[in-house]
Amino acid sequence: METILNLDGVSMSFGGLKAVDDLTFDVTRNEIVSIIGPNGSGKTTTFNVISGLYEPDSGDILLKGESVAGLRPDQVHDKGIARTFQSLRLFSNMSVLDNVLVGMHSNSKSGLVASMLRLPSVRREEAAMRARAQEILSMFPGRFSGPRQSQAAGSLSYANRRRLEIARALASDPVLLLLDEPVAGMNPMESHELMEQICDLRDAGYTILMIEHDMHVVEGVSDRVIAMDHGVKIAEGTYEQVANDPLVVEAYLGKRSAHTAS
């Protein structure tokens, strides 16, 4: 199996606090890997380091064997890592379709002057992009059909905004898709539906690394689970292995049992 992402001893600290401490793991092609861990365990920081929002203090991040540590977020995106955000970051005053089209920025190349003059090459590219955007939006059947596409993204329902974020990330045909709590705030039915769609994405050939709190979802989709606590990887393996790992149980429940003891 080809290794897509390889984190090699990545550390990141803020002031005195080590948010991520010597983290090492791999993600192989066509795999869904979930990162779990209690709040503040460094999961989102890990995502921010991978996607270039932070530069790691030390360690290397390799995408298909090529270092991406220290690149700017847009360069990381160009290399093929697309992400969603835990706290929805859509372009609220732009249409649904435009949000997806922005996701294709790195895959297109029309320049300023050509766009102003609307040269034939620009028109061709635009038409191709729109067709591809339709394709991506149709992955969520019935959610973004017809007039919905020209609606402002900010007017969508909460669940649809989460879906649109995924669509925007998919638009660039990423080598690796990072999903930060994709089902957060969804009701059980919605999250079940999204779970199936995430599995479909894997079947379509995508590689996914995701952070998730909902254990039902983690169990349902993950090929492999990584558990973190205080910035350190404490367990890795299948869902059953990780869920039964004493360290993981302690990280989640230890505090509470310590509480009752005192």
């Binding site: 996607s51 270039g52 929002l53 700017r72 977020p73 847009d74 360069q75 995106h77 160009d78 697309a82 992400r83 955000f85 970051r89 859509l90 372009f91 609220s92 005053n93 732009m94 435009d98 089209l101 922005v102 996701g103 920025h105 790195s106 297109s108 190349k109 029309s110 320049g111 300023l112 766009s115 102003m116 609307r118 620009v122 590219e125 635009e126 992009m129 925007r168 990330a169 660039s172």
Partner: peptide, 23 residues
Amino acid sequence: SRVGRAWNALREDELAAVSSGIT
């Protein structure tokens, strides 16, 4: 166009825009 949308995206949310590949 691509350029106009990139500008709009920067206006709406710079962090999300750079994470979508906009320099």
